[in-house]
């Protein structure tokens, strides 16, 4: 009844603005958390933004040391504290997830594995946590 007849333009769909994301976002995120597609989209975007912010900070922090060498070694000693090593491990996990999920997206772009999209999301997630486990094992002597 409400659907547009042939040759007629239907109602223009409203764009989801910032207010929509702010008001409905949390509930949508919780509901969609266990739906693989939504989970992968949110996690890919979140890790991407985190890595992008880290990249810019990384270039500035490491880069300024080229012009101030005295500060560099003490800065690196600070970054070698367990807290920063744990943050480094989280960054490693974010990079691993973004990369592995990116591989999944590229395969789907080539229409490979489309039937297994949902399962592959959990494969990617499991692989990420395995890699983080390996990283934790590698860093363990420094953390304890």
């Amino acid at each position: 009844m409400n659907s547009p007849r042939a040759g007629e333009q239907g109602p223009t769909p409203r764009r989801a603005g910032l207010a929509f994301y702010l008001s409905r976002g949390p509930s949508l995120i919780v509901r969609g958390l266990f739906e693989p597609g939504a989970f992968a989209h949110a996690a890919h975007r979140l890790t991407g933004l985190v890595i992008c912010a880290y990249l810019l900070a990384h270039i500035i922090v490491i880069g300024q040391a080229a012009f101030n060498e005295q500060g560099f070694d003490s800065l690196m000693r600070t970054f070698h504290r367990p807290l920063f090593l744990l943050l480094d491990l989280l960054l490693f996990g974010a990079v691993a997830f973004h990369g592995l999920n990116g591989c999944r997206l590229m395969l789907h772009d080539l229409s490979i594995g489309l039937r297994h999209q949902g399962r592959l999301v959990w494969v990617v997630t499991a692989a990420t946590f395995s890699l983080m486990g390996w990283g934790l094992w590698a860093l363990w002597p420094e953390l304890t």
């Binding site: 690196m76 990369g99 002597p141 420094e142």
Partner: peptide, 29 residues
């Protein structure tokens, strides 16, 4: 897509070589 593929190999090498191969050493100038 292409840059993503290249980055995946490069960034893993970058992180593993600098932080995970020999975590005991601190990076110096």
């Amino acid at each position: 897509r292409l840059s993503g593929l290249l980055i995946l190999g490069l960034v893993m090498a970058h992180m593993v070589v600098n932080h995970y191969v020999d975590p005991a050493t601190t990076i110096t100038v």
